[in-house]
Design a protein around this nucleic acid. Structure first.
Lengths: 390, 390
DNA sequence: CTGTGGGCAACGTGCCGACAA
DNA sequence: TTGTCGGCACGTTGCCCACAG
């Protein structure tokens, strides 16, 4: 569903593109599943999205009005729209949440929903170099990526080339000339590339993503460097209003069991504030106390994922307004000094207990969700013919 | 005051620039004066600023929670920050409002505050032509404007020229080469102008504004064509939250007489929702009933002001949620068909009763505020010397 | 007085292979 | 395998004036 004009009908490939742009850590609960909503996390996102966290006094005064709002709210995910900012291409999701009575929860709803199979989607990402983004030239496509993911070139041409058309998250089409030339031979995007770079305001360090669906349609997306994210946000709204709006909306929904909606911004939000119910339940099984060791996933600067280890320092309330809330209930100490950008407090479901490797099950027994890269149905194309030199 | 980094200390000249960018119709109440705040108008602005007015159902359900919120709130204007969007240069104001008990209002507070004298500020506006905005050339400064407002050229130079530096609302400095050349002679801005045009995304029909203060500092600002305004707005916030935030914030402030804040966006808001108290009182004096004739000011496409005439059709509630509210309490019919863009409903303080010209007081008795253009202290400089042709 | 267009030089853009990491 | 550079052609930018509305 979704009232938005641009993306009223988002197909599977667009959804894959959205997730690729959101980064490896973002996984959204399926529509219809049970989730836990955390107002504190929602407010954290609002704070992170507004330039001035001024007027904190006003917020504090007024939020007493909603003190009956619980720290967490069991909901069904009624709907989700995957969207992108028209100016920055930043991805966000509009979630419709329907509060649930605890009593009506069936046993099946407590379990992890079935993993939806990956379609035959091919993808590649590349972090842009200075040459890729300069006005002097085009985009150098890594050989492997071009052969796996781009339509097959006719290598009898001299030089082999084709015109590509790729849609972005807004449905806008971008044209690229794909050519295979130079000594040694390489894949390049030339005509059309610089238009894309300037329209998307790409700089060296940003990542471009290409996807190809089963019937050959291409998609192109963008993920900006993590360092670049703290961009000046223009808000025409008082941060107090935004803040209180979140509280009022959730408070009213909780009291009357009426649906409400929340925008989730994976690249700006410090943590996910709508989490699968089974993930919440599972995290309750572990006894996490001061001194416990744990690991937690983060996105690296090269936009892959990595685990960092740490120790729980204490278990306490992150915010006195929500006593006994599990949101960021654990103050932690990270092993690595470089972890200065890591949060000082985390929530139970964000971490996994640290277990010595020897006690792990054999890997084939694991139940981990499929990795981003699909089972490579690669049509390994050896570049042959038309080699005219060396 | 203001916590914002860019504009923490806004001087008088910046304030003039802000008002010039806001347009001739916008006049802000002075800090410390009494104002009337209208939640309905505030919400109208939020709706006008958000792309999807979807989820109206959610808003309606939840807004019943705030039904004790009155239609208008007497406040003191505690503070006001004049700001501009860093990306679009759109002006907006952050107003701090302090609810007042009706009983504490003194007689002086009911009267119009003294008009602050215009400083010696020179200004000119120009609506940009196709030539002004094309990449082919520079900006043609109308002779009169250049002589009134730009620093005096040394006409002994050949050709006369100088470097100008003008600051915008963000404090960013822009350099322009000002030259007086051609046959016949004319004032031009050349080097630096096109950078400004592309940075501000100016198109033909937009207006540029130059101001010069007493000690010679220059300011430059932008006012976009009225037709261009409905630009796609990116919001990372649920419109429901924004909507409820306004209600919650005002509701809480009204109950406890605590200050709150509101963003006012003169170029987007359909009407001002914070109006001087004396203006409100004065509008109460007129008996406005169905059939009454009136006039009302509007901004023309050439960004000057013009009055349109109309007739009151009926007096009724604009929104059943606020019975007996004066906000847009009058449904009107405009005399001119071109008035299709005019609102169908107006509030009493927006209009002036239609009085036949014969009964008006002589103009020198009038109490109208000073016009935008200051008493011209013009140093009429006749371009002399260096005329080398014709 | 000032908007537009022709002339023209300087600069930037963008396609190419060479080379080396 | 692929990032960066020099070479080079072509299109755009931008300063100048002429001319006309």
């Amino acid at each position: 569903g979704g009232m938005d004009g641009n993306l009223s009908r988002m197909d599977e490939l667009d959804s894959e593109l959205w997730h690729a742009c959101a980064g490896p850590l973002t996984s959204l609960p399926p529509v219809g599943s049970l989730v836990m909503y955390w107002p504190q996390g929602h407010i954290e996102q609002v704070v992170a999205c507004t330039p001035d966290s001024a007027a904190a006094g006003e917020v504090h005064e007024a939020s007493t009005h909603f003190k009956s709002l619980p720290s967490h709210l069991l909901c069904k995910l009624g709907n989700i729209d995957l969207l992108a900012d028209p100016h920055t291409d930043e991805v966000f999701a509009n979630m419709v949440l329907v509060p649930q009575h605890e009593g009506t929860v069936t046993k099946e709803m407590r379990e992890a929903p079935a993993v939806t199979r990956q379609k035959n989607v091919r993808m590649f990402c590349k972090t842009l170099t200075a040459s890729d983004t300069s006005t002097h030239g085009g985009f150098s496509v890594p050989r492997r990526s071009a052969e796996d993911c781009l339509p097959l070139l006719d290598y009898n041409m001299n030089p082999p080339c084709q015109e590509l058309v790729a849609k972005d998250l807004h449905g806008t089409e971008w044209n690229f000339r794909h050519i295979y030339r130079g000594h040694p031979r390489r894949h390049l995007l030339t005509t059309g590339w610089s238009t894309f770079v300037s329209a998307k305001k790409l700089v060296a360090g940003d990542t471009v993503i290409f996807l190809r669906g089963e019937n050959g349609q291409l998609r192109v997306g963008v993920r900006r460097a993590t360092k670049q994210l703290p961009q000046a946000r223009s808000t025409h709204f008082s941060s107090t209003n935004l803040h209180l709006g979140v509280l009022a909306s959730a408070h009213h929904a909780a009291q009357h069991y009426l649906r409400f909606s929340a925008i989730f911004n994976p690249r700006t939000s410090p943590s996910e504030f709508v989490i699968p119910y089974h993930k919440y339940l599972k995290s309750q099984e572990n006894k996490l106390t001061a001194g416990s060791r744990f690991k937690m996933k983060f996105e690296t600067e090269e936009s892959s994922e990595r685990k960092y280890a740490g120790t729980i320092v204490e278990v306490s309330d992150a915010d006195p307004k929500w006593p006994d809330s599990l949101w960021r209930s654990m103050k932690v100490q990270w092993d690595e000094i470089s972890a200065s950008e890591r949060h000082e407090r985390v929530s139970p479901w964000e971490i996994e207990p640290f277990v010595p490797i020897s006690t792990l099950l054999p890997p084939q027994m694991g139940l981990r969700p499929a990795k981003r890269r699909p089972p490579t149905l690669v049509t390994e194309v050896a570049p042959q013919g038309s080699s005219q030199g060396t």
